[in-house]
Structure formats: C-alpha cells, structure tokens
Amino acid sequence: MAKKVNCTEVARRLQTYLDGELEGDWKERVQAHLDDCVMCGLEQDAFSAIKADLSALPSSPPAESEALQRLRDFSARISQEASS
C-alpha cells in the first residue's frame, strides 16, 4: 500500500506526471491523490489543457515539405556517393 502524499508533493510532480515521466510508485501515488483532491484536479486540468494546446501547434516552420524533400534527396545522395 503506497504512502499517501499531500498537495505540495503532488504540485511539485504534477507536470512530470502529465508528461508520463514520473517514475516508480510516485505515479500511482500522484494518480490516487488526483482522484481524490479537487484543487489538485483543477491544476491537472489547467496544465493538461496547456499541454494539449501546445501539442496542437504546427511542429515546424512553413515550407517544411520542401525542406524535407531536399533532405530526403540529400540522404539518397549520401548513399549513392559512398557506394560509387
């Protein structure tokens, strides 16, 4: 049975938890606390929303496809030149 944690301990680990990077039994302890505690649950919602908004942003600059195509061509040339 995992030891109970308080709000301060959860606040310190909340973002790591949301990133799926919390290790050991901390993951379950934080999870258990979040299921019970309204205040920490609201914090969780706030940071989840921010993370979701961020991950929906375009991940690279415009014209990415052209640059990527050039890099693909470049990769193909590396192999060709090395083997010829």
Binding site: S59, S60, E64, A67, L68, L71, R72, S75, I78, S79, A82, S83
Partner: peptide, 17 residues
Amino acid sequence: DARFNEYVVPELEVLYR
C-alpha cells in the same frame, strides 16, 4: 546503406523540427 535507410531516414522529419 540499408542501415542508414532503416534507422536514419525515418527520423528526418523529427531531426528537421
């Protein structure tokens, strides 16, 4: 070449970003 195509080329997009 096979390894380059297997391990490196699929990561091009991530590398660029």
